[in-house]
Design a protein around this nucleic acid. Structure first.
Lengths: 105, 105
DNA sequence: CATCGTTACGGTGCGCGTAACAATC
DNA sequence: GATTGTTACGCGCACCGTAACGATG
């Protein structure tokens, strides 16, 4: 049985865990922090699992979410690397402004 | 530099490569075949790479796309497995009808 | 003529931004 | 008061369905 979570929400989760915070992740990815908050709430809702401990004004991964974050990171890096090798250099001119969001250094 | 393609389009690509055809993939995933066609066109457009050879009325992976399909398959299986272990059994009742689409056996 | 992929056309909810808020350092 | 995450509100297009089409075995 193969069932995927909402992928854009998963991407937001991935960015936040990498950056260590919502606002940092938002700036890196070029999106608003409100968007990331919504996506993470959606992910927690659909999974039925609390992914972050809200402590004061910072986020920390739940124990259950730590292993998950590691696997998600692995998966997105695979996708990123494969996409990069596929499109040597003929892609950047076709991407719309919307795809240019969500690109990190 | 980390840049992700449109993830729903990538998911469609994944389904089609697994099922060996658009209509088969659509039936498996519980979506319309027209939706899959659109997603794959979007993916090819944003990547700037032709992923399938259209021969008569069947699809065959391009040489360039073969390695890509393998990596994409790996990534989605990682996500699927990790999500499954994270949500032992407390998730299925929260999923909306929309998430129930795109679930395979 | 049954089945394939593509195209045409609309509707709707997801994904996003802007702007405000509450809370901690 | 500077900075954090959250909430409120609204907009546009990505995403999907239905229905028709052209083409091949």
């Amino acid at each position: 049985m193969t069932r995927l979570p909402p992928l854009h929400a998963l991407r937001a989760f991935w960015l936040v865990t990498r950056a260590g915070g919502i606002r940092a992740a938002a700036e890196e990815a070029g999106v608003s922090h409100a968007a990331l908050t919504q996506q993470i709430q959606r992910l927690e809702g659909t999974l039925g699992v609390r992914l972050f401990d809200r402590r004061s004004r910072s986020l920390r991964l739940t124990k259950a979410a730590e292993a998950y974050a590691a696997e998600v990171d692995r998966a997105f890096q695979v996708i990123s690397a494969a996409t990069h090798t596929l499109t040597r250099r003929n892609a950047s001119n076709i991407l719309t402004t919307h795809q240019f969001l969500w690109s990190l250094d």
